[in-house]
Design a protein around this nucleic acid. Structure first.
Lengths: 165, 165
DNA sequence: CAATTTTTTCATTTTTTCTTGAAATGAGTG
DNA sequence: CACTCATTTCAAGAAAAAATGAAAAAATTG
């Protein structure tokens, strides 16, 4: 094993364990492994880390790090933080459950529900084209979808509240 | 285009639209496309469908259909239904939101939370091995993870309640 | 209970998704 | 404002996930 220069310092077993946990959470949420790794590393880190350290410790490419950080920033799971006397931006993990959930729903869930509104409208139009024999049952199905959609929209603020603790 | 024999009858635009919607929901939940297709087809269908029809209408392989149905049954999104005078099992979609969410959490979410309990215990052990200088901050991190875990466990029954409507 | 039909399983192939690495862009500094 | 260092972008390659198809198992029926 060479090139110890670029990897800052190896991860401790403790860090590995925490990172592994977040890798699994990421895959549960349908996010790339690297995203879990990055968040996990920042979560255990006692201080803000620059991208170079992330790349070095996790042994991932600059490209992955850049993309992963962008995604994490997009829903507020990671924040850039100014560090005095340092040229590069450093990053910290957001650890407030409420903020994490809220950002995640806002950016990853809500757009789909929004999209659902359009789809339901389109379904109503397709419904009108249907031969009368099928119309009745089809309408029941669409009605149910609309109730689900409504419920989902109502649930968002409630989930946010739940994590207020 | 040949082999019209096996595909029962083509999907109507309305059906296609509903199926497409469920395909997206499936991918949102990290499930294979085919699972969304199958559920979607059963959701629009006015009556229970045998596997052969599912395979024919969706143009998927028997293997996919069998595996997809198994997954869907595993969390109660689809139920086998006896149809008089028919040899094969037929399937219907569960359409109660409450039942769907409950089954999904029970089978797909809860096991991970359960697993989390073990991981946290393991983390506590790794923590003990840490050099004193790092121990304090590491303990804070683990403590926070435990609070998250606790909150998540508390949320399950509440989510179930939400969908009671 | 043998023959037939249906379903499941699983190795292989196909498709999709993720990661990489290098070039382009952007930012900071002397 | 030119030079250096840092970040982003994106095409190509690698890895992971899903679908297929055929063989095995299970169930049904005459």
């Amino acid at each position: 094993m060479k090139a110890a220069a670029s990897q800052s310092e190896a991860l401790s077993p403790f860090e590995v364990e925490v990172i592994d946990l977040f890798v699994r959470v990421a895959s549960l949420l349908g996010m790339p492994r690297s995203v879990g790794e990055i968040y996990g590393l920042l979560y255990v880190a006692p201080e803000p880390l620059p991208m170079e350290t992330i790349v070095g410790k996790l042994q991932i490419s600059l490209g992955s790090a850049s993309q992963g950080l962008r995604l994490l920033r997009s829903f507020g799971a990671v924040k850039p933080q100014y560090v005095a006397g340092q040229r590069r931006d450093h990053f910290v993990a957001e650890t407030e459950l409420r903020a994490l959930l809220s950002g995640y729903f806002q950016e990853q869930v809500y757009p789909h529900l929004q999209n659902g509104t359009g789809r339901l409208a389109s379904l109503q139009r397709s419904l009108a084209e249907l031969p009368p024999a099928q119309k009745k049952i089809a309408r029941q199905r669409v009605d149910r979808l609309e109730r689900w959609h409504k419920t989902a929209l109502e649930m968002l603020p409630m989930v946010r509240k739940l994590s207020e603790k």
